[in-house]
Design a protein around this nucleic acid. Structure first.
Length: 376
RNA sequence: GGGGUGGUAGUUAAGCUGGUUUAUAACGCCGGCCUGUCACGCCGGAGGCCGCGGGUUCGAAUCCCGUCCAUCCCG
């Protein structure tokens, strides 16, 4: 396809922008945050709830769905849409990152990567061709090219080789991907914390006809200042007329920084995984429901929040549910966190439209990051 | 009344044929972490006059005596 991406508003003071793209008639406004639904479900909440909270684009994982239940099974159900009932949009990860972060005994060569499943230890080989085939079977709306994601502490020589491989795999991904009407294909550039390799990789990947571009290999163990430096130097060099996607990024303070530098799309497990570990996000900072000071707290997770959890339940009750291992606590915390992220992105968009993102950022950070005691 | 068994962190237990310098563990409690999800996960911390009182010994949660409590069996 030829993904139409329109920029509606550009800041005059930084690289931030508001835009939108449309796939199968479903409009996505950017900046956009995508919740992660690894196995075709955002853990603990239903597709309807996801949509009602305000999301119409979620990420699902090629690697996981390939292992279970198998991409052919999903295909026979009519792809992820038919399988899950989430009648909106899916972006699928290529599997490259999972092989890096989950699989044991991986061996990378030009052809692809062989690894052992984290589930049963069985041997598999992923290639760009297979990744495209799997993502096609899954019926993803946005498909990611197969890349190699080096760890944050990888040395120069290793990363130099990895960008060559990533380039080779990007070309093969395009070749192997049978273009469908309503299916976008995004490329990913790498380069670790090395600016020259980043520039080289970006040039290589953007020479190919992708519908959008992602900056990969960030928040994978490198120092935060190194990541920030790369973002500052690189994002504004990414093609302006295509969506820019920062993979795996999701700390709220990071989101602001990345958006300010021109990123349009994000995905992250943070709101959902952290919810299941007791953490909830508010404009006053992040808190853990396990803390004993919430035992008798009759107030909602965040005062003024209009989400289902906050309309109906107190922190004291949710804390009780958490400690009794009641599934409901995971649901309520997840719903709230997803709602917070949604609200946060909406506020950011509004700030961009008014060209007040920097003020918004400093105000947000002054409260969110400084929270110590009794701010609720 | 006689006999058996047991009393060790908040809880449940291990250690108990005497001897490593800070008496273990699990759960609970307190706190931290989580960035393209092996994730109801991971890491750390606090907490014990080893029922009580004597005795033996260089040394006792461990052996002996007494005592209290719990529990079971027999009268």
């Amino acid at each position: 396809m030829n993904l139409e991406f329109q920029i509606k508003k550009k800041s005059g003071r930084n690289f931030s922008r508001c835009g939108e793209f449309c796939i199968r008639g479903i409009r996505v406004e950017t900046p956009v945050f995508m919740p992660v639904g690894t196995y075709g479900a955002v853990k603990s909440v239903s597709p309807d709830e996801i949509y009602e909270i305000g999301y119409n684009l979620i990420l699902a994982n090629t690697y996981h769905l390939y292992l279970r239940p198998g991409h052919k099974v999903v295909e026979n159900f009519g792809g992820l849409r038919g399988f899950t009932g989430f009648d909106r949009l899916f972006l699928t990860d290529s599997g490259g990152f999972q092989v890096f972060s989950l699989a044991k005994l991986r061996e990378i060569n030009e052809n692809g990567v062989t690894f052992r499943s984290h589930i049963d230890g069985s041997l598999h080989c992923f290639t760009p061709e297979l990744s495209m085939e799997v993502q096609n079977s899954l019926g993803a709306d946005i498909i990611m090219a197969f890349d190699e994601c080096p760890p944050g502490n990888a040395d120069y020589e290793y990363v130099r080789k990895s960008i060559e491989i990533t380039y080779n795999w990007a070309e093969r991904s395009i070749e192997a991907h049978k273009r469908k009407e309503d299916q976008a294909l995004f490329g990913i550039f790498q380069g670790g914390i090395y600016l020259d390799l980043r520039k080289e990789s970006l040039a290589q990947i953007t020479s190919l006809p992708f519908d959008g571009f992602a900056i990969g290999g960030l928040a994978v163990g490198e120092k935060k200042e190194d990541a920030y430096k790369i973002v500052e130097e690189m994002v504004h060099r990414m093609p302006e007329d295509r969506p820019r996607y920062a993979m795996g990024i999701g700390d709220p303070v990071d989101l602001l920084f990345y958006i300010k530098n021109g990123v349009d799309m994000f995905d992250c497990v943070m709101p959902t995984r952290n919810a299941r570990n007791g953490q909830f996000f508010t404009y006053n900072g992040r808190f853990n429901i396990r803390n004993s000071r919430f035992t008798e707290d009759r107030l909602p997770l965040e005062e003024g929040c209009n989400c289902y959890s906050c309309r109906r339940f107190s922190k004291g009750y949710i804390r009780h549910l958490y400690f009794q291992n009641e599934i409901l606590s995971h649901r309520l915390l997840t719903i709230h966190n997803l709602n917070f992220y949604c609200r946060f992105i909406l506020d950011i968009k509004e700030a961009i439209r008014q060209d007040r993102l920097e003020e918004f950022e400093s105000r947000f950070k002054s409260v969110f990051s400084e929270t110590e005691e009794g701010q609720l």
